[in-house]
């Protein structure tokens, strides 16, 4: 019993394929919304998927404490909804991408906007590769929030309105 499109099955329904391809299929199912590989019990796999998202939420909250605090009790739900089918780029980038996405739909809380503005002033981040520290003075602007970085030190010029 092999689901359609899941590749050939060996004798006695045993999945075949190299370890590399099977590991890749499994990770894609766990973090990128790909269909579960054949033969895995769905309940345990779903539990593992949820556990990975919880771990990831914790890691992002460590990198972006104000973003998480600003979202308060909705933080886990907001993060998990956003992250469910998105593979991780690491805690720093995940939080950055989420903060930008929330800002784009005007759902970024004030604390998160300040944290994002500070980061934008500190680092250059193109959304693709690891953020790189800015060498020259820079402004970070998130809506009305403004942060200024000079020689690595950052000051909020205009905080978020409460």
């Amino acid at each position: 019993m092999t689901p359609a499109g899941a590749g050939p099955a060996g004798p006695a329904g045993r999945p075949v394929g190299s370890l590399a391809s099977r590991q890749a299929e499994l990770v894609a199912a766990l973090v990128a919304g790909a269909p579960p590989p054949p033969g895995f019990a769905p309940g345990p796999l779903a539990a593992a998927r949820a556990a990975l998202l919880r771990k990831r939420a914790g890691e992002v909250a460590r990198h972006w404490p104000l973003l998480a605090a600003g979202l308060g009790p909705t933080w886990p739900t907001v993060f998990v909804e956003w992250a469910a089918d998105r593979p991780t780029g690491g805690g720093l980038r995940d939080g950055w991408d989420l903060a930008r996405a929330l800002h784009a739909r005007t759902a970024l809380p004030a604390l998160g906007a300040e944290e994002l503005a500070v980061r934008e002033a500190q680092f250059r981040y193109d959304g693709q590769r690891a953020p790189r520290r800015r060498r020259s003075p820079a402004l970070g602007r998130v809506g009305a929030v403004l942060a200024l970085q000079v020689a690595g030190r950052v000051r909020l010029l205009r905080p978020a309105r409460p």
């Binding site: 590399a20 890749a24 894609a28 766990l30 973090v31 990975l52 771990k55």
Partner: peptide, 8 residues
């Protein structure tokens, strides 16, 4: 695996 980080 396959260029994706599982995260744990």
């Amino acid at each position: 695996a396959g260029g994706l980080e599982a995260g744990h």
